[in-house]
Simulated scan of single mutants.
Amino acid sequence: MGKLNFYLEALDRNHRKPHENPTIGMLLCATKDEEVVEYALSRFLSPAMVAEYQTQMPNKKLLQAKLHEFYQILAPVEEEEAP
């Protein structure tokens, strides 16, 4: 959680646009252990929620399509910022 919050803060400070909402993070775990989750999240002041546990990853082609879609949205922004 510490690393996740570090990266979220870095994104918000350095890359978030004024019209965008604060960045959210997603922590994916290989196994379900409610006790570990409870201890890991208990000291964080910002709201952290456990949405759901899934025993299988989403379809690989769906993930690839979503990543491609995401990068297509970002590509024009990155090109404009290049010197």
Results as ranks from 00 to 15, higher is better:
residue 7 Y to I: 10
residue 24 I to P: 00
residue 34 E to A: 07
residue 3 K to C: 01
residue 6 F to G: 02
residue 70 F to V: 06
residue 5 N to K: 08
residue 64 Q to A: 13
residue 80 E to D: 06
residue 78 E to I: 11
residue 23 T to W: 00
residue 23 T to C: 09
residue 75 A to V: 00
residue 37 V to D: 07
residue 76 P to L: 05
residue 51 A to E: 13
residue 8 L to S: 02
residue 40 A to T: 10
residue 37 V to Y: 08
residue 43 R to Q: 15
residue 29 C to W: 05
residue 63 L to W: 07
residue 61 K to E: 14
residue 27 L to D: 04
residue 63 L to Y: 04
residue 37 V to S: 05
residue 54 Q to W: 10
residue 64 Q to S: 11
residue 66 K to W: 09
residue 80 E to V: 13
residue 30 A to F: 06
residue 33 D to H: 08
residue 76 P to W: 09
residue 32 K to W: 09
residue 41 L to C: 11
residue 68 H to D: 15
residue 43 R to A: 09
residue 82 A to P: 00
residue 11 L to E: 06
residue 22 P to A: 05
residue 63 L to R: 15
residue 72 Q to S: 10
residue 3 K to V: 03
residue 4 L to V: 01
residue 50 V to S: 09
residue 70 F to Y: 12
residue 19 H to N: 05
residue 49 M to A: 10
residue 2 G to K: 07
residue 62 L to R: 13
residue 81 E to Y: 11
residue 35 E to I: 08
residue 41 L to W: 00
residue 74 L to R: 11
residue 26 M to W: 12
residue 17 K to Q: 15
residue 70 F to L: 13
residue 82 A to R: 08
residue 3 K to T: 13
residue 53 Y to R: 12
residue 25 G to I: 03
residue 16 R to P: 00
residue 4 L to G: 02
residue 18 P to Q: 06
residue 15 H to W: 14
residue 71 Y to I: 00
residue 75 A to R: 06
residue 60 K to S: 10
residue 82 A to N: 07
residue 7 Y to K: 02
residue 70 F to I: 06
residue 1 M to E: 12
residue 33 D to A: 10
residue 28 L to Q: 03
residue 22 P to F: 12
residue 43 R to K: 14
residue 29 C to S: 10
residue 52 E to V: 05
residue 8 L to A: 04
residue 70 F to R: 09
residue 14 N to A: 02
residue 36 V to K: 11
residue 45 L to K: 14
residue 61 K to A: 12
residue 14 N to L: 10
residue 1 M to V: 08
residue 7 Y to P: 02
